[in-house]
Simulated assay, not measured.
Amino acid sequence: MLKQLRILIIVLFIATVIFFTRNTIKQKGMYILFSLIHKSVIFHSLGAENATSYKINNTYNYEYVFIMEIFQQGNGILFVETTDRMDEPSLVLCSIESAARVYPDRPVVFFMKGVGDIITEDDEKKARDRYPTLSTYKNIYFLPLRLEELFAETPFLAWYETINPKREIYWTHVKSDACRFALMWKYGGIYMDTDVISIRPIPEKNFLAAETFTNTSSAVFGLSPHHNMTWEFMENFVQNYRGEVWGHQGPGVFTRVVSKHCGVPQFTSKDHIKCANVLYFHPERFYPILYPSWKKYFEVWKNLPTFNNSYALHLWNFMNKEGKSMLVGSNTLVEHLYKQYCPSTYEGILNKTHA
């Protein structure tokens, strides 16, 4: 007991030093201090598989400590951008802002392939300042997405090292599917696609969601770090890989695993049901408007829906081949959603319109 107490005191002391150092030291060269942190502390904080994917004694020291702070409670809200795009459309910004507003006490983290290394606090600030409408939310963070490091110590690494992206039809989407599983395995929390607008907090920690009564959603799910079901998702992804089939690596993975454990879940009400020790949400929770009717978001409604049974709304951006977007003054449903759930994003569009 005494030995454990000593270890706890040491860990708390190091955490305190990290906190105050991070907030007082800003010169790049001074961040070498973080390399003095013993690897065992990092291993116990987030797990060995995360520590091995970062350069502990090199340029990523600050970034790793930064990540350690963000994800220490395993309750992050995770978004991902697998292309080099940095000029994000308004729907992406709205999704992130709405999550930051609905979950003010939880970190909202956008992993982006186009973001460079976060070596100093200034790097962190520059990443944040790219998006003025989001910069006032202190719980929003932007982090680089490095696939080999993310896939390390998961079933994905061997698959990723042998795949030929040039032969893949849906490579951007398949990468995104893999990333959400790996991020959930390593960090836990809630994953959301960037076309999901949050409207109220999801009250459960470990959950999956029905997209329809026969298919499971891949756009929103939540699990604890290192949850056994996440590992099963990754294994199913690799073992049944068919990248040429749309949705096979996303909703298909979820649906196959859920079917294995629970068959086709049967809802008798809008309440959730249990499946393999996680909660399984009714389609109404995230899909009150199903994909054949996706255009309804961009239409004018005589009576606006309340969405009282929903936690978030999936806007089916993949279906939006026409490039429909929120237009100021259109009085469409999506404009009302922007006004209510991502007002800073809406105001930014409004200012550009009148500039």
Rank of each mutant, 00 (worst) to 15 (best):
T154Q: 07
P155I: 03
L157K: 10
L157H: 09
I163K: 08
I163G: 01
K166T: 11
R167N: 15
E168Y: 09
I169Q: 02
W171M: 01
T172Q: 14
V174R: 07
F181D: 07
A182I: 01
A182N: 02
W185F: 09
K186R: 05
G189E: 02
G189C: 08
G189R: 02
Y191E: 01
M192E: 03
T194I: 02
D195I: 04
I202V: 15
K205C: 08
K205M: 13
N206V: 06
L208K: 03
A209K: 04
A209M: 11
A209G: 00
E211W: 14
T214D: 14
T216H: 02
T216E: 08
S217P: 00
A219C: 12
A219E: 05
A219Q: 12
F221N: 03
S224P: 00
S224F: 04
P225C: 09
N228E: 13
N228V: 10
E235Y: 08
N236R: 01
F237C: 11
F237M: 00
F237L: 00
Q239G: 04
Q239S: 13
Q239P: 00
N240T: 15
Y241R: 08
E244A: 10
W246R: 06
G247M: 06
G247D: 05
H248R: 08
H248G: 00
H248T: 04
